[in-house]
Design a protein around this nucleic acid. Structure first.
Length: 258
DNA sequence: ATGGTAGCATCGCTA
């Protein structure tokens, strides 16, 4: 079973590229972020024609997350699970696909450490943990993938000194990530590439950052131990960031043994 | 120190 996460930065602007990539890579489960679509504008029929069932949680204009699956799509939960304060924005959707409880998450950016949006980000990450406690357990097969807008450690950014005092690398954000690890999640890319440095999943459109190798690894596939054990391989498809009208994020892939 | 690009939707916001 091949599972991927990809922040597409507008599914409307990216649909052709996404379709082409799906035809080439043939993932079984696809976690999308930043669809920027209302639910009634989500191209479910397009994906159906490619063999995918889908669940979308959108609001139009901004945010929006989706799950596509060829291996079943059951018990869909939009927003946080029952018992967790719902979020005003469309940033999480959860479903059971091929026996794995998967979530597609789009963690708030944070903007700046002194911005209210940063407090929203920290609170959102607290609620993500509460969601996991309410929805499932670490002994279950769980995979929470998406754009976390956090670089887990200093090897996951191009130049840590330049980023001091910025979001994505602050202690408080990384503490929230650690809380998810403490619950039972493991960073699959880091698990498979313990020594990797400067391998990124996002590059700013500006300043030719992609071509200069200046990015961050902020798109993560986090999984519980039973999924980690089944994982054979985890990569970031940097090629998908190339060419005309790319998303500013590259997809992250994992293959799970049956 | 600033502003650079992209998407959506306006004449600014978000990233």
């Amino acid at each position: 079973m091949r599972v991927v996460t990809w922040n597409v930065n507008s599914l409307k602007a990216r649909l052709e590229r996404v379709e082409g990539w799906l035809a080439e890579v043939r993932p079984d489960v696809v976690l999308l972020q930043e669809t920027k679509l209302a639910d009634d504008a989500f191209p479910a029929l397009t994906f159906e024609s490619l063999g995918y069932r889908s669940a979308h949680h959108g609001q139009g204009r901004w945010n929006g997350v989706a799950i596509l699956s060829t291996v079943g799509l059951d018990d869909v939960v939009t927003n946080f699970a029952e018992g967790v304060e719902p979020d005003d924005e469309a940033r999480i959707v959860t479903a059971t696909c091929g026996g794995v409880r998967v979530s597609s998450v789009y963690v708030p950016n944070g903007r700046a450490l002194d911005d209210d949006h940063y407090q929203y980000k920290l609170g959102w990450l607290d609620r993500l943990r509460e969601h996991l406690v309410a929805d499932t357990g670490p002994d279950e097969p769980v995979l929470v993938g998406g754009d976390y807008n956090i670089a887990p450690d200093d090897r996951d950014v191009h130049d840590i000194e330049q980023l001091r005092g910025a979001t994505h690398v602050s202690d408080a954000e990384r503490d929230r990530l650690t809380a998810l690890y403490d619950w039972g999640l493991v960073d699959l890319f880091r698990h498979h590439h313990p020594d990797a440095e400067r391998v990124f999943s996002w590059w700013d459109y500006r300043n030719g950052d992609f071509h200069k190798g200046r990015g961050m690894r902020i798109d993560l596939l986090l999984a519980t131990p039973s999924v980690v054990e089944r994982s054979e391989w985890c990569v970031i498809d940097r090629n998908a960031r190339k060419g005309k009208q790319p998303s500013d994020h590259a997809p992250v892939l994992v293959d799970l043994a049956d």
